[in-house]
Simulated assay, not measured.
Amino acid sequence: MAQKVRDLMTPHPVTLPPDASLVEAAKQMRAKDIGDVLVVGGDGRLRGIVTDRDIVVRALADDRDAGATTLGEVCSPDLAVLGPEDDTDEAVDVMRERAVRRIPVIDGGELMGVLSLGDVAIERDSGSVLADISAARENT
């Protein structure tokens, strides 16, 4: 029996509104030891994702003010999404095709979690370097 996304996803992802600043997102990432925040509008609809790499490449490298730049300005809005009952093999295929490391998990329009490449690596090959890095304790 194939493993399901719900078995590996990280539930209750960190979300921020589109008008939150990059500084707010970076502080959440540091506090929660994560590499992304999901951008959710006031209507509860998923608007995009912002990763630590997005902050660097789409904002800081362009000399944008991290305190004044909003998540809505730099988030990736064209998201691949998965359902909790999707097979993890399918999820890996989507990650490969879209060249992404994280995919939001949606059920009936409700944000349920995030599946990351690290989540899959830990489960599939716990001895791999990616699994070791993904399972490592936060740097202090």
Results as ranks from 00 to 15, higher is better:
residue 33 D to P: 08
residue 41 G to A: 10
residue 96 R to P: 07
residue 138 E to L: 02
residue 131 A to E: 10
residue 1 M to Y: 04
residue 87 D to S: 09
residue 97 E to H: 14
residue 50 V to L: 09
residue 81 V to Q: 01
residue 137 R to D: 08
residue 50 V to D: 13
residue 101 R to Y: 06
residue 71 L to H: 11
residue 31 A to E: 14
residue 34 I to S: 05
residue 37 V to P: 07
residue 47 R to D: 09
residue 91 A to Y: 00
residue 44 G to V: 01
residue 24 E to C: 12
residue 50 V to E: 06
residue 2 A to R: 00
residue 103 I to Q: 00
residue 105 V to D: 01
residue 46 L to R: 03
residue 56 V to N: 07
residue 45 R to V: 14
residue 122 I to L: 07
residue 43 D to G: 03
residue 78 D to I: 02
residue 101 R to G: 13
residue 63 D to H: 02
residue 42 G to M: 00
residue 48 G to T: 11
residue 72 G to T: 06
residue 9 M to G: 01
residue 65 D to V: 06
residue 139 N to P: 07
residue 130 L to S: 08
residue 2 A to Y: 01
residue 3 Q to R: 04
residue 68 A to C: 10
residue 92 V to I: 14
residue 139 N to V: 13
residue 37 V to E: 07
residue 130 L to N: 05
residue 126 S to P: 13
residue 139 N to I: 12
residue 128 S to C: 12
residue 100 V to L: 07
residue 47 R to N: 01
residue 119 D to S: 03
residue 123 E to W: 03
residue 13 P to K: 08
residue 83 G to P: 02
residue 65 D to M: 11
residue 74 V to A: 10
residue 124 R to I: 01
residue 77 P to V: 04
residue 104 P to Q: 11
residue 129 V to S: 12
residue 107 D to Y: 03
residue 5 V to I: 03
residue 88 T to I: 08
residue 95 M to S: 09
residue 139 N to R: 14
residue 24 E to F: 13
residue 114 V to E: 03
residue 104 P to E: 12
residue 67 G to M: 15
residue 115 L to D: 03
residue 90 E to V: 11
residue 70 T to R: 03
residue 55 I to W: 09
residue 81 V to H: 00
residue 60 L to F: 14
residue 70 T to C: 07
residue 101 R to S: 10
residue 113 G to I: 00
residue 53 R to E: 00
residue 97 E to V: 07
residue 80 A to M: 13
residue 107 D to K: 05
residue 136 A to M: 06
residue 140 T to I: 14
residue 126 S to V: 00
residue 18 P to S: 09
residue 34 I to D: 06
residue 83 G to Y: 01
residue 33 D to R: 11
residue 33 D to H: 15
